[in-house]
Design a protein around this nucleic acid. Structure first.
Lengths: 341, 341
DNA sequence: ACGCTCTGAGAAAACGCTTTCTCACAATTC
DNA sequence: GAATTGTGAGAAAGCGTTTTCTCAGAGCGT
């Protein structure tokens, strides 16, 4: 029996005593159950407001079997993409009276499973962003995590909706855009090796290569951060490419900065593209050509799917298969026609 | 009928049954209470792992009177500053096994009080970022929110630690920096009228004016966003100022962009400073001179203070008065010597 | 007047756990 | 050998709600 050191919060019993009724009746009044006589209800309400009574959510949760809270597992809270997902999710959930609990796995993918389970148990559902988690592990975990919404992953467990971004299509459009500007030597600054979304980009680029045999496309190791992009400047220059597809906007911005330091002009000497269209992409110099992903909206959608799951909306009333978000080519000024040299 | 909708989660009773002991004993074993015979403990543990038993956190919370969760109220999750605080807080709290619950007030300050109370009741403590909340309201609310840590606010309730950033000092240093470069006509792009941190900046600038009677310092209405800065470009030009102190980095970046569009060179024609040193500040063109606030560290500190509160560390063992973070002048290339014109 | 349904409110049983209480049994002491 | 300690585990009492069960008493028809 947990004894609180601090002054006991006022509970339903205090209100009941003050109103001269049983706590059952207080509960009924508080929950708008109308099988209570109007005068008594008024008396209870008066007592409640006078004592400033607020029901204890933990007791409530235990009795109702729900917490009005959903969890989100993110690999890295400093990444603008996950920040945006979190924002969209949190705002949409708040509209329906739900709160969001954060579980940041700090890129430690070995912790992800435990973290996810922990968070799930505390909440009514889980949004999982785990780009590095192995397929097998995800598959094994999925049933125990339901209700769950997946971001950029899929699973055999058909109960778990997936929200995907078509990175393959987006990167192809960016590549096509560069080709349209006359570029024939391209380079892709790849993201983290094991990242699922990097895989999708690579697959897209394979298709692109098949469709454009004449184009030279080199693969360069990169990363997913500013620093990675900044550090790749020399490798990019060495590659001789005139058009560079960065893994994402962060990397592109780092690259922009690295090239600037070396006196390379963008887009006159080299064209650079990003991916995601993070808020800052339109304010870089030059402004960044990128593939815009409606990421806040994705966060919102994640909540809507989750809501359907929680409310047990029959699955046939809901789109089956993953929901795919199409990136939109956003041409700005970091790309231009190839310079003849 | 296919599968049963209600697959009851396995609870302590199942483990007790399987191990042939009472649930009290299971609880003892799970909590490392050593008054249990070793062989029985082993049997219980075996049963627990076999059934993959995980204690229900809600039941646990109710019994223990704690949730291992803290809440944070932020006015706007899209603001990089609050994102950074959240990140620092979340990571530090995670180290000690605590999770963070988000309550985004979406700048609706009328909702802040209810939101804060709601979040507080669900959690063991609350970190409050409410720059717009009225002093009186905060004062009234404070006792009911304890344990609480305040960001950039103070209250008479001495139990609530405050973490403050010395915006006044920071803005003075930036102004001094500009004066040192030869600027005599300055402008301050003010933030939101009712924002507490804007007030601190204004107070700092008053001191600055007193110390530098010869300097012309104009106050311009601005805001706190990119768009606000972008939209102020004309007003800035009209002011004739050669050095502009923007409310924060976001505003500065917007201004940079607006000036760029108008063909104004920075820092040759106009010097611009920001505030905060958000991650992107070092990647703008030109890179942004700003006052660096150790904001992630502030988030971390917020947790440490909260932890002391929760653990009931005697207040005399802890620094009294608000903890003040000093911004550090970060000179980059958006400021330069004044051009003679 | 007598049984009948209805209404409304208290008593009590969940919800899933922790922890105090209690007591049987074995191990010590005089 | 009886009284006295320990030891360890079950029974039960919380924690603060919601909700089912139960049952007085009022209103109605015959």
């Amino acid at each position: 029996m947990g004894r609180r050191a601090t002054t006991r919060r006022i509970g339903i019993a205090d209100v009941a005593l003050k109103a001269g009724v049983s706590h059952a009746t207080v509960s009924r009044v508080m929950n708008g159950n109308f099988t209570v006589d109007a005068t008594i209800a008024a008396r209870v309400r008066a007592a409640a407001t006078e004592l400033n009574y607020q029901p204890n959510p933990v007791g409530r949760s235990l009795a109702l079997g729900k917490t009005d809270t959903i969890g989100i597992v993110v690999p890295d809270l400093s990444n603008p993409t996950f920040q945006a997902i979190l924002r969209g999710l949190s705002m949409a959930a708040a509209q329906d009276g739900y709160r969001v609990l954060i579980a940041d796995s700090s890129e430690v993918s070995s912790e992800e499973a435990i973290l996810a389970g922990e968070a799930r148990r505390r909440c009514d559902g889980l949004v999982l962003c785990a780009p590095r988690m192995g397929d097998a592990e995800l598959e094994e975990l999925a049933p125990s995590l339901h209700p769950m919404v997946l971001i950029n992953r899929t699973t055999m467990d058909t109960r778990a909706p997936s929200l995907m971004v078509d990175y393959g299509q987006g990167i192809q459009e960016l590549a096509e855009h560069l080709v349209g500007l006359g570029h024939t030597r391209l380079a892709f600054l790849a993201g983290p090796e094991r990242s699922a979304s990097n895989g999708l980009r690579l697959a897209g680029l394979e298709k692109f290569k098949a469709a454009h045999p004449g184009i030279d496309l080199q693969m360069l190791d990169g990363g997913s951060s500013f620093e990675a992009g900044h550090g790749s400047a020399d490798a990019v220059l060495a590659s001789g490419a005139t058009g560079v597809l960065a893994f994402n906007d962060l990397v592109a911005m780092g690259l922009l900065s690295g090239l600037h330091e070396r006196g390379i002009r963008v887009p006159e000497d080299i064209s650079v593209t990003g991916f995601d269209d993070i808020p800052f992409a339109r304010y870089t110099t030059p402004t960044l050509t990128t593939a815009a992903v409606p990421i806040t909206e994705l966060g919102q959608q994640a909540w809507h799917r989750m809501r359907d799951l929680i409310r047990n909306v029959p699955s046939d009333a809901v789109a089956e298969g993953p929901t795919v978000f199409q990136p939109r080519l956003e041409v700005r000024s970091s790309t231009g026609t190839v310079s003849k040299s």
